[in-house]
Design a protein around this nucleic acid. Sequence first.
RNA 1: GGACCCGUAGCCCAGCCUGGAUAGGGCGUCGGCCUUCUAAGCCGAAGGUCGGGGGUUCAAAUCCCCCCGGGUCCGCCA
Length: 537
Amino acid sequence: MESISGIRPPLKDPPPGKGDIALPIGFLLSRKYKKPPEMLSEEFAHSLELSFVERAVPEGGYVNIFFDRDKFLHLIWKDTISSFFGSDREGRTYVIDYSSPNIAKPMHVGHLRSTVIGESLKRILSHLGNKVIGLNYLGDIGTQFGSLLVAYKRWVDKKRLEEEPIRELFRIYVKFHEEVEKDPSLEEEARKELELLESGDKERVELWKRFKELSIKGFERIYNRLGVSFDVVVGESDFVERAKTLSRELLERGIAFIGEEGDKKGAILANLEDEGLDHPVLLKSDGTTIYLSRDLASLLWRAEQFNPDVLLYVVALEQNLHFKQLFSLARKLGIEKELVHVSFGMVHVEGMRLSTRKGQVLFLEDVLDKAVSMVGEEMKQRGTFSPNDAEKIGVSALTFWMLKTENNKDVTFRWKDLTSFGGESGPYIQYSYVRAKNILSKTESSMNPFTPTDEEWNLIKLFPFFEISIRESARRYSPHILARYLLQLSTQFHHFYDHNRVIGDRREPLRLWMVKSVENILKIGQHLLVMKPPERM
RNA sequence: GGACCCGUAGCCCAGCCUGGAUAGGGCGUCGGCCUUCUAAGCCGAAGGUCGGGGGUUCAAAUCCCCCCGGGUCCGCCA
């Protein structure tokens, strides 16, 4: 279309009976050539010659395209049942920073969003033929360790720490904040502990390392259940030294300055006023680093280490300003990579005011367990129960729920939504997948093309949009586009399934190919959305 | 004071980037469909001033400006 008209028209759904694809191309061309849209769409329709287009009918500013169903079928016949369907060879290198939890704090439903969006983007970009490095950047530095050291000495239950490390660390963390209310001197004690830790006190460093190990162990448990894995795991603490030298370098190059009067006296501040980004602190007046300088050091390291074309940060929208400042500094240092903050909105929990300090969190593990057990109940009633499939369906229900909404929108977690497995849900997609699989398991017949009927065609013509939605998800760094496509395909398949017989029908050879295509698309699609295809349900 | 995000049916959301034909789904409500490949499904009905007002355009949910509502950030925390 582009080569004929010189522009790239959007693909629209025409009204029923008016073809397969509608192009508002007359309107678009009329802007350029200042002629009436009707005339231009007529010209375009006549000049359009593509093997799989049967006819192109101009109508007003539109051109309605009718496909030649046989040729179209021939064109896609092999692709849609290939495990490479929707893939490409883009060949760029990406580093994606995602999940990135804080050590010694539990993962709750909020952290899940970064984890799932990041993992999904990693899979999508890989499928498109890119080299993708998934990076988990642990928050292993900060004031919480002072409080934690105090809390550890006073209240830790060592047995529970072994069994449930994250929960126990969290329990004493919350305990600290309760006790501090009664005894403010604990705050001072925590500050001293932190100082000792940072000055390299052996006992405290050992404990810190242990907290870190235990936390990672706890996180791994969840990552394993979700099927999430990282290529690189680093901590903020790895970039402290470089952050210091970097801050001084910025100072020498005139990008930063030393605070003189006022409350920031003696600190090294970046000068970003030319971009309206204020002058954030790089190095505190006591010479210690801060997240911005560490993030900058880490960014430079990523650029050197992996030489990527694009650096992605899947981090909450609230940190928008931070990333503007970070990217601006990177540019001033001559980094010319594409830098993208893939932001996402907050996750609220119905009926809960989330506060880590007060212990008000919804543990990810509890959410997963509950979803899995709800699924199990349903399966038992149907007589299809297996622990494996219940786990897959429950976990996928959660990941799909996270991905079906556009990144930037806030979402509210409701048990009701997650445990009603109908409608726009993971199980809805998986159910159509299982139905397709089930048909395929019952026959050995071969696949052969027939000219599709309208009913068949309505499903078939959705197949190529799989590729398009994967590309769109990648372009916009938002998996929801693919999620919506899978819902649409599932709906159409359920409809087809309920109205047409496959096995034993005289059109079985074509229909088997359709079912196989649906099964294949849904299998790849589930993988790209961090879902796990079940066997039965 | 400055900046960012969101506002589409009772509730949740897609469509906005890239303007085009009567604005699409899901939940919930009401009514139908299991002697045939799994009813976590399917079919139908009711439900909309696209937050408001200007502007640009042959054409605005979509682009621009102003306003209103909700959320967030602007710390020697991350």
